[in-house]
Write a protein that binds this DNA or RNA. Structure first.
Lengths: 189, 189
DNA sequence: CGATTTTTTGAATCATATCAACGTACGTGG
DNA sequence: CCACGTACGTTGATATGATTCAAAAAATCG
């Protein structure tokens, strides 16, 4: 039984215990060691991953040959390259464990099979996507509203625990500036 | 009958003619004159809008009191403030017609009613959202990969027709820089 | 046509990047 | 469990891309 996932789903839709049992037989959990990869460029993304423990990051190598993090996956979030998952074309992204982690893989094939039988799963995923999309819109809004320094300060007051959990250079990458600049901001008091 | 919308939906899911008739009775089309608003800050967003003709923009007023466009809505795209629509809290956004336009309003109440009866609608909206979310992810990827000038040049080679359709200052706003800077880029040949 | 909206131009300024060097911490194997 | 090597963080000097402000020129609309 994948309790963390079931709890999460039941916040959005109704699932009976029998349904839960059946769904869970289709899913497999994996444990990841820090720095293990779930996805690498060139590979086709086969699943959507629910993070039940630990922390992952989704990143790519940009034009300047630098790692650019576009998303973190904390406990209770889904992480995947939807583009590759949907089109089954090779990904340009890495998904990697930042800390030891545990994920539940929801395969594309399982997705198609299960949503056939359980329409409320379709509702669940629509709601999850809606939340993810709203978050992405807010992120774009943020990028365009605030300077890099302001974004760092907002971020660390809003997520103080998270800031301590990741190396600074990853935070800088996620926020879209250099580690040196982050260091200088922090030095300013 | 809202043919543009039906065509669009049938690219993603199967809808019989009877279903189509029933669905269409729940929807209403509106025509908008250039500069008309579908949503303004402080109001609660009641619908998701399918753009069947013309061009809309979604924007907000940022910290520097400037209009910041976060999204355009072209023919065949949906546009809304998902956050306000979902939570029924007041929006911070404007949705406005850039050109004379026609939209089909898909009310939140209609959404709940229709997806009850037609599960494939849930699938349709999940797929639409997945596409929108993938686009938002790609946009963030772009912002972090290229300089403002590079982003403008990519954008205008990828969407040459679109660039001619909107005033330059809106394009600058969407791409996240000043109209003056856009003008200088263009002057450079 | 006049009024408004949009675009252009130039000079001064600012936020952030880059490079390079040095300091610190940390985990891994002996 | 210590020492070493690698990964991470800091600092300062210099460079750059983009903004701001102000004014004029051009385009569009009623």
């Amino acid at each position: 039984m994948h309790l963390a996932l079931l709890d999460h789903m039941r916040k959005y839709v109704t699932i009976t215990d029998e349904e839960a049992t059946l769904i869970c037989t289709k899913l497999k959990a994996s444990t990841l060691k820090k720095k293990d990869f779930l996805l690498q460029p060139g590979k086709v993304c086969r699943a959507n991953y629910f993070v039940s423990k630990g922390l992952l990051r989704l990143y790519f190598i940009n034009k300047k040959e630098q790692e650019q993090i576009t998303q973190f996956g904390l406990e209770g979030w889904w992480i995947t390259d939807y583009d590759s998952l949907d089109t089954q074309k090779p990904s340009r992204f890495y998904i990697q464990a930042v800390e030891d982690a545990e994920v539940i893989a929801w395969d594309k094939t399982v997705q198609e099979e299960l949503t056939q039988s359980f329409p409320q799963l379709e509702t669940y995923f629509r709601k999850i996507l809606q939340r993810a999309y709203a978050a992405a819109q807010r992120r774009i809004e943020y990028i365009y509203s605030y300077s890099d320094e302001e974004r760092y300060r907002n971020f660390s007051t809003n997520f103080p625990g998270f800031v301590q959990r990741v190396p600074q250079y990853m935070l800088a990458s996620y926020l879209g500036f250099t580690p040196q600049f982050l260091s200088k901001i922090r030095a300013k008091k």
